[in-house]
Design a protein around this nucleic acid. Structure first.
Lengths: 172, 172
DNA sequence: TTAATATCGTTTCATAGCTAACGATTTTGA
DNA sequence: TCAAAATCGTTAGCTATGAAACGATATTAA
């Protein structure tokens, strides 16, 4: 009956119905089903987005989602420290270092130690890297638009507004 | 000035402002800034969510995000085919196979071939696995609730509704 | 100045994750 | 009936990923 009151309008996805049916049988003091719905569905879209982009756009260029996001940052900022690169992509410095290796091997970027502070390494996009992004990004963006096209512009704006609040509150 | 009309209320995150400033200089026929905002912020939360959970909850149990999601599915369904496991977690069968290896080594689950169709392998959670989830899940859920607590219940419901539409339209 | 501390990027090592190929099994179609 | 096709999970070989440790450099404190 929790299901009933929670799914009066048949709004829930089939997986959500299964999950709630089973979770409510498990002895947990307080279960916040709305929070579960937000988190689960949010992550599901992110995962789908990533997989779709890798399959339909990025694989043709031999780029993973994370490699792309690193190259994207380089495209936007031209030259940037490894640390900022890692933070922006939400990965560790170690991973950023590895991915920079890969991108460097493909000649999409190069490294240069900062002379003023020799602990810092600047990563810079090459012309080859720029050409790839100029060809790649329009395709990426097209898919991006397509994925959210089921929402009206107002709904997109409303969604972004809520998402930003979550980002701010959690320092994401 | 695009920025101006787009950020009249100071709503945008600093990274968004940087990105738009630079993207609008790049020659791309049509740029849908609302779509970019939704996709970018959505993924950013998913990444933050995953990292936070791994650091603050899952690492104590030696579980990655994906290992957890597999174990969670087993907890909910008790016994399930490898293929469904992979689909539910949004990973390939190969990865699901690897993670099942790891979980089996920790004695959180075991495999059993289906007698009616010997191509199918059922993965089943063990008592040890269940005990871990009973201890782990409340902590996970607590964080889940905390992360979306900046939204009111109505906002959470509205958000989920929009998210579900995107999932349905994209078959995510 | 010098010693202690902090910061930055890399390396190491384990697991996660993908694609492609494979062996075993079941289903289909002539 | 029986060969061809489809399906399932695993393996092989690769890159991605993070934690921890490390070397080099910079900053701080005495």
């Amino acid at each position: 009956m929790i299901i009933h009151s929670f799914n009066e309008d048949g709004e829930l996805l089939p997986e959500e119905v299964d999950t709630i049916n089973l979770l409510t049988k498990i002895p947990i003091e307080s279960l916040n089903l709305d929070a579960i719905a937000v988190v689960t569905n949010l992550y599901r879209i992110a995962q789908g987005l990533r997989t779709k982009m890798e399959r339909e756009v990025l694989s043709a260029y031999g780029l993973s989602w994370t490699s792309f996001s690193i190259l994207y940052d380089l495209w936007i900022w031209n030259s940037i420290e490894t640390k900022k690169l890692a933070k922006s992509a939400g990965i560790t410095k170690a991973t950023a270092s590895n991915i920079t290796d890969t991108l460097e091997r493909k000649e999409f970027c190069y490294r240069k130690v900062d002379n003023r502070d020799r602990r810092i390494t600047f990563v810079t996009i090459t012309d080859k890297g720029k050409r790839v992004m100029e060809k790649l990004y329009p395709q990426f963006h097209e898919n991006e638009v397509s994925i959210v096209s089921s929402l009206s512009v107002d709904e997109q704006k409303a969604m972004s507004k809520l998402l930003r609040r979550v980002i701010r509150e959690n320092n994401f």
